[in-house]
Amino acid sequence: MRPAPIRRSFGQALVEAWSGGAGSVLPFGFFSGTAMLVPFVLGSAPDRLASIGPGMLWLALALASLVTLERMFQADLQDGALDLWVQEPAAISLVALTKVMAHWIVSGLPLVLLTPLYGLMFQIPIDTTVPAMMAFGLGGLTFFLWGGVAAALAASVARGGLLIALLALPFYLPTMIFGGMTVQAGLEDPSFLFLLASTLFALGVAPPAMGAALRLAAD
């Protein structure tokens, strides 16, 4: 197995994600916009914001991950890159995993790095910020992995954004539960290990499923 196609697709995915419409700005703007609306809807009392803040950021992260999913594989199908990957000796599931990683770096990681800032704005206590960042990082990766499966399945569907969201959301549930508990209870809580386990589970199950779905889309 040659590593070259994987490295190439990684770099290409990064470049595409930066320069294309689905760069960091879009999820960042969506994340900020969703977060900004919440105090107006639910009230801005500092103690209320502190109690709902982490959960609200979780929700914004999950929704922001959905924004970019539609473009994850659709462009590769349209410009023919997918047909070339299928013929490469490198396993297509690894190529798909690379794409997901690149998308996570571009669209998920900036939101994790912004968590302290949002933590200040939403009166989230400083000592829950670090668990929140860990949980957001792992949870975001899991969201992109399951979302990648949905995106690969719906790659050939025009305007499949809503369909992808419907397919992906049930798979988000365990991560949301464990992640929400981790943010509230800290990294010593067993829920952090469960969150880690669900991420590893997604790392094991999602790439083969993405590979099978992409091979179908390329047919």
Partner: peptide, 13 residues
């Protein structure tokens, strides 16, 4: 594919 991925996820959910 979707049904099989869903089936392995059901115990976790």
């Amino acid at each position: 594919i979707l049904a099989m991925v869903g089936a392995v996820n059901v115990p976790l959910i």
